[in-house]
């Protein structure tokens, strides 16, 4: 049985086909066959991505995701725990520590530390926010706070990996890689997302590139790293290598059929 073009279109989701075939030869053939699919999907402004994604009308155009390792604790910012405040200075209840992975804290006296700064309710929603964040407190009704996150990883590296890839096992795409893979990006030629790493401060934890890596997805979905805002402000990047005038015209001599 030989399939007609129309059958191929119905059988194969074009975008998944494109992303699956790394050699891209089938892609060339299908690009023209699958035009109706493309037209239907490209009412969005994104380039690339999977068809049928997102499955609702998007309001957000872009996402800024701050992973603030070494930042202030949730217990001092957004996550008020009255019981913890009550137990301030007292030994941690055994019910809380027994059987828990507490690493090098084992066999030490563990005491509760309540919030060092007061919390207050803000906005109509009554969100409890630390006094240390007056600016954010002023927009309490415009933000969403998720207090139900948890982790099974207590060491820095695997915990960061869970935060950014969803599992502590290496080799999985990061959040940005999934978003770029699924939703596409705004430009065909530029990276789908940019990563700013911070430097300085007190002996910071090392950062692993898997936090913005593409994992098992092709490397075009990985994030492009810039080292902090200072570098963005520089006229040129860190790579002070001499520029080559792009010899584009050499490509004009290439025979499209043979690739020579």
């Amino acid at each position: 049985m030989q399939l007609s073009s129309q059958q191929i279109v119905t059988l194969i989701n074009r975008r998944s086909f494109l992303s699956r075939t790394s050699l891209g030869l089938g892609a060339t053939a299908l690009a023209s066959l699958a035009k109706p699919v493309l037209t239907a999907a490209s009412t969005r402004s994104a380039i690339g991505g999977l068809s049928g994604m997102p499955h609702f009308t998007a309001k957000a155009k872009r996402v800024i995701f701050l992973c603030m390792a070494g930042g202030p604790s949730h217990l001092e910012t957004f996550d008020y725990k009255p019981e913890l405040a009550r137990l301030d200075g007292q030994p941690m209840p055994e019910s809380f520590t027994k059987g828990q992975p507490i690493a090098q804290l084992q066999n030490t006296k563990l005491k509760c530390l309540g919030p060092l700064f007061p919390f207050r309710r803000h906005g109509q929603s009554g969100q409890q926010i630390s006094d240390m964040l007056p600016g954010i407190a002023g927009i309490a009704d415009d933000i969403a706070i998720v207090r139900s996150m948890h982790t099974d990883q207590i060491n820095h590296d695997p915990a960061h990996t869970v935060m950014n890839t969803g599992t502590s096992i290496s080799g999985r795409p990061s959040m940005g890689a999934w978003v770029t893979y699924g939703l596409g990006s705004m430009s065909e030629d530029l990276p789908g997302f940019i990563v700013l790493t911070s430097e300085g401060g007190r002996n910071p934890q090392p950062i692993a590139s898997r936090q913005w890596g593409a994992g098992f997805l092709p490397s075009r979905f990985q994030g492009k790293v810039r080292r902090g805002v200072a570098e963005l402000k520089k006229r040129s990047g860190p790579i002070q290598w001499p520029r080559c005038r792009c010899p584009d015209r050499m490509a004009q001599a290439v025979d499209r059929k043979t690739g020579r």
């Binding site: 049985m1 030989q2 399939l3 191929i8 059988l11 194969i12 989701n13 998944s16 086909f17 992303s19 699956r20 599992t167 096992i169 290496s170 080799g171 999985r172 994992g215 098992f216 997805l217």
Partner: peptide, 22 residues
């Protein structure tokens, strides 16, 4: 990653079917 190749494979049976049917 061996635990995590599902995305690719989920996309795949349609293709396998195409070739097989051919």
């Amino acid at each position: 990653n061996d635990t995590t190749c599902r995305w690719f494979h989920r996309l795949f049976p349609a293709l396998a079917l195409t070739i097989a049917s051919c």
